[in-house]
Write a protein that binds this DNA or RNA. Structure first.
Length: 224
DNA sequence: ACGTGATCATCA
DNA sequence: TGATGATCACGT
């Protein structure tokens, strides 16, 4: 936690209100940061801009963005109708030495125990500089959502532990999926194969499916 | 290579 | 047209 990070949840939410309704061009200027031409060759640009404004600790540590508040920041692209446009990356998937892992001590559970969702206009037809930041809100999984996430985590992790990682596709899981997560197809890491031998596989990450995040977004905006 | 921030772009 | 598999940038 650096000096610029919010000291309380209230302060964090206050900063969210400050950026809501502003365009990415305005926010980039406030941050003294050049506008990205597009996201094609800088896919995390929006997320990092929002991180700067909210005072999230930069870096690539496998922790929540606001560890002292127990909060993870996620920008989520939506269209003008509130429709979710992309899946949501949660964290890298453990592939080796997974025997002692369980849902309760998993990275997934820790990461999304409390999420600050920051909706950002994301239609590709809208120029990046004109896209507007929406109203952010805090969310924690309810009992049913937790159960679904746990079921998917268990299903996926069991396959990995049994050496069946190559049989897992993005179709597995009801609300969460496992997909490749790497710079390119040449990135490889060790995994356990069908016969217990060591094999090389593409690194994977956990992603929340759109139907799941859509229910979260819809519920918030309908109640609000 | 790995973990962070994610969206792209091809094909069913 | 939408989802799956692939990919981009950066820090360590």
């Amino acid at each position: 936690m650096d000096f610029n990070s919010p000291r309380s949840t209230a302060e964090l939410l206050s900063r969210c209100e400050q950026i809501a309704g502003h365009s990415l061009e305005e926010l980039a200027e406030m941050a003294g940061q050049p506008m990205a031409k597009d996201l094609r060759s800088n896919k995390g640009w929006v997320g990092q801009l929002i991180e700067w404004h909210l005072g999230a600790t930069a870096g690539s540590k496998p922790e929540q963005d606001f560890k002292h508040l127990g909060i993870e920041l996620k920008t989520i692209p939506i269209d003008q109708n509130g429709k979710v446009l992309e899946t949501t990356f949660v964290c890298s998937a453990p592939i080796l030495n997974t025997r002692q892992l369980n849902w309760e001590n998993s990275n997934v559970r820790n990461k999304i125990s409390k999420v600050l969702w920051v909706p950002v206009q994301g239609e590709r037809t809208v120029p990046l500089c004109d896209r507007i930041v929406g109203n952010s809100f805090l969310w924690s999984a309810n009992q049913q959502q937790t159960q679904l996430l746990k079921l998917d985590w268990n299903e996926i992790m069991e396959k990995i532990a049994l050496g069946q990682i190559e049989s897992i596709t993005a179709r597995n899981g009801q609300v969460m999926q496992l997909r490749p997560k790497a710079a390119n197809g040449k990135c490889l890491t060790n995994a356990v194969g069908e016969d217990g031998q060591l094999i090389k596989v593409r690194p994977r990450g956990f992603y929340l499916k759109k139907t799941f995040t859509q229910s979260i977004i819809s519920q918030y905006f309908n109640i609000k």
